[in-house]
Design a protein around this nucleic acid. Sequence first.
RNA 1: GCGGACGUGGCGAAGUGGUUAACGCACUGGAUUGUGGCUCCGGCAUUCGCGGGUUCGAUACCCGUCGUUCGCCCCA
Length: 421
Amino acid sequence: MNYQKLKGTLDFFQEEATKLRFVEEKAKSILKTFGFEEIITPIIEATDIFVRSSGDNSDIVTKEMYTFLDRGKRSITLRPEGTASVVRSFLENKLYVNSSLAKFYYCGPMFRYERPQAGRYRQFMQFGIEVFGEGGPFLEAEVIISAYKLLIALGIKGIKLKINTIGDFASRKDYADKLKTYFTGQIDDFCGDCKKRLEKNPLRILDCKIDSNKELVVNAPKIKDSLSLASLNNFNEVTDILTTMAVPYQIDELLVRGLDYYTDTVFEFILDVPGELQGLAICAGGKYADLVKNFGGPDIPGIGYAFGVERIMAVMTSQNLFNNLVKQTDIVIICLDPASKKMGLQLANQLRDENMIVEMDYKNYSLKQQFKLADKVNPRYIIIIGEEERNNGMITIKNTKNNTQEKIKKEQLIAYTKGKI
RNA sequence: GCGGACGUGGCGAAGUGGUUAACGCACUGGAUUGUGGCUCCGGCAUUCGCGGGUUCGAUACCCGUCGUUCGCCCCA
């Protein structure tokens, strides 16, 4: 019987696991400087949580969720995104009572039943943040800045920040109606999807890959003209702050997000790099003014974003940004007979207590074979213990950098290595 | 959900309608028994994703299936 991983899933081991953890740790350390705290929520939630938040017409809900009935006949879903769970937890635990602003980051697997391709998997890691509370344009800008700083800290080149405002629900409804009127009867030569979108969600016609370059689309009514003055002012302030903070951005009036809960400011960091990753979003998010309220909670706005960790790993790999992740061994202990092996084991663990990385060959007794193991892990020092050393309470220690060796008393070993490794 | 490409040992990769399935890396053993990383020699796929068909014969041809991968839709 041959077992293999499920379609669209990934095993991370050795170097890849190290990369994943590296990105995660870096992200955490930067967000901590912004005062974020970690929130860990379950991977499974009641299906309704996601239907409510993403919208029952969204693609995620209609065709991408892993949903099943548990033994109690409850509909359970593997989370397709992080925001809904965090909002649920925020409300359930009344995390709004102690402060007017709650800032969380999370990291974990998300699940979407899609056809895998470059940078897309059925189980993928997202690193994201959510902030609850009224913070105005400064908060929104800070959130975007935190994402930007993170990408800079990771060293990723070729990223572009696209930002837009889609207004509140009222102005969006108004805008959708305008678009509908505008496009009705005019899109006979548009793709089939766009024809469907006209009824369902006319905003999506604007970022259709096939039709978005058409004159009709380019000249379509702009969302700006449907926005409330407050929305408009807010957006202008956000971009102003970004400019002040020297965060390059590009206003993209066609940027509309796929999840229904967004309002006002939405943004994406996309990759502008050659190859298959070109154009992929590595971070996306926005404001959601009414999501908490719609969940039955107080009227508290939220804003957040999520990074696609695998995508970040992919770009970083292609840009050679994982240089210092090689496994490092400090010492290999070579033991030439069983009695020496026991002594070696003791020494190894004493050294490990000093935080040194120590390995040894458990199987062989010949010097040559053990040296071969040592070559593979390329240690700073090689210790040799045989009958000769044992009888004198000595060990031989060899510096592999300059190929010198000396005999020292085994009691001196810790002191000898101090400061050298 | 739709379309294309691909599927040979741990990895990379050649190959042909007929029985020894190249080669490289990795792994493993050895080149006289306490000093390696180089070199040399040996071992390592009864088997070419799986199931069926065509054929005297298939890893090679056909069908199906599963899987990988890329694109579309959508998205991180």
